[in-house]
Design a protein around this nucleic acid. Structure first.
Lengths: 211, 211
DNA sequence: CTTGAAAGTTAGCGTTGCTTACATATGTTT
DNA sequence: AAACATATGTAAGCAACGCTAACTTTCAAG
């Protein structure tokens, strides 16, 4: 019997760590039941706490989702950074690894990934979220610029970085929606990333790497 | 005072056209309040009907969303077909127009577009929806094959068609999430589509067209 | 006409998000 | 140690929601 929940139910009157435990509970529920059909009440039951308790730590439902999304963006950015760090500057595999990290995150946390991009208008203008998004964009632009051997502020570099983002973003969504052709294999996916990388980053082809 | 609702409230006991009017009401509400925060009850109020009435026409909430999504996919496909038909076979602008139609649909109906791709697992395996998706995919593959002067069943053609789909899909999502760089202008968007088209469809560059 | 199906209604159940009022634990001050 | 302020929990309750059951109205076929 696999109970993989990381949420500990409380023992004492004061939970001690309810805020984090609630976020974790919501994360698990979003992952299990999808972003729409989760309820605060269910998360409370998971944490063994009354349904009014969350409102000592969060403003409302949207605030909880905002925090979960914020944590997720942090994890995504860390994963991308780690993937990029695995290769030296100038190595063309660096960009592919970055994209692969993005896709892998979407697949392994499809619920929260979908949630991150289905937030209400109230969330759209949230400074924390837009900030995290901006940082991720800069990361990609820096790597693309480095890869092309150009300045990150060039319009063309920004456009190419954005195009790559569009691609991995779209592919991520199509994958978790199971709309990718005949359940694409890992090899086919790697080939796809390579094809797009080669097509969008001309420098790629002239380098000495072949992997 | 602009009341753009197309929903007519009922006059007689028997509405006469409740099913379609409900779908229209839901479409408007999804567009106005987002895919998550709409309620059947509100749609009923719009149509001037009791909250129990919808269940004579639909199984449940998910069934309603399924039908709205199905109609939307029809509209999307029509728009893509029309865009493609605007140019002769072999004209490179054809593919760009196809992509532009996809993006335009996403922008003009961002609510339902988002909804189409945030359906529950129950929807994922719905034959009608997967069927509509399959048809759209074939349309793209046919045009890409035609454009490359190759057979639509080539793995490479399918891969390139899928890559293009990923790109426009991702761009659409990023646009309606207002995550596109500095509110990209129409010209910049056209340049983007051209860049990606040129990069992904080598034949493009060798053709005589310059637009 | 009668009658039966189709398509509405009202009433109500259980769940949800959230608020208010109250209870309990913790830490600081005196 | 006593007392208070603060943080954090509970209990009870409201309005809205999705959905069902049972009843009523309309319409069309026989």
């Amino acid at each position: 019997m696999a109970d993989k929940s990381l949420v500990k139910i409380k023992k004492k009157y004061h939970h001690g760590d309810l805020r984090e435990q609630l976020l974790e509970a919501v994360r698990e529920l979003v992952e299990k039941h999808g972003p729409d059909s989760f309820s605060i009440a269910e998360a409370c039951r998971l944490a063994g706490v009354s349904t009014a308790a969350p409102y000592k730590h969060f403003k409302d439902r949207d605030d909880i989702l905002r925090c979960v999304a914020l944590q997720a963006m942090g994890r995504l950015r860390d994963a991308m950074q780690a993937a990029a760090d695995a290769y030296a500057a100038g190595d063309p595999r660096r960009i592919a690894a970055l994209g692969q990290a993005y896709v892998d995150f979407a697949c392994s946390e499809s619920g929260v990934f979908r949630m991150m991009f289905s937030l209400t208008e109230a969330h759209q203008n949230d400074p924390d979220l837009t900030d995290a998004g901006e940082k991720a964009k800069c990361l990609v632009e820096r790597l693309v610029a480095e890869h092309l051997g150009r300045d990150p502020d060039t319009p063309d570099v920004k456009l190419r970085a954005y195009a790559l983002h569009c691609f991995v973003h779209g592919h991520s969504f199509l994958r978790i929606d199971a709309k990718t052709p005949d359940d694409m294999s890992a090899e086919a996916e790697a080939a796809l990333l390579r094809l797009v990388g080669d097509a969008m980053l001309p420098q790629h082809q002239r380098s000495g790497y072949t992997a």
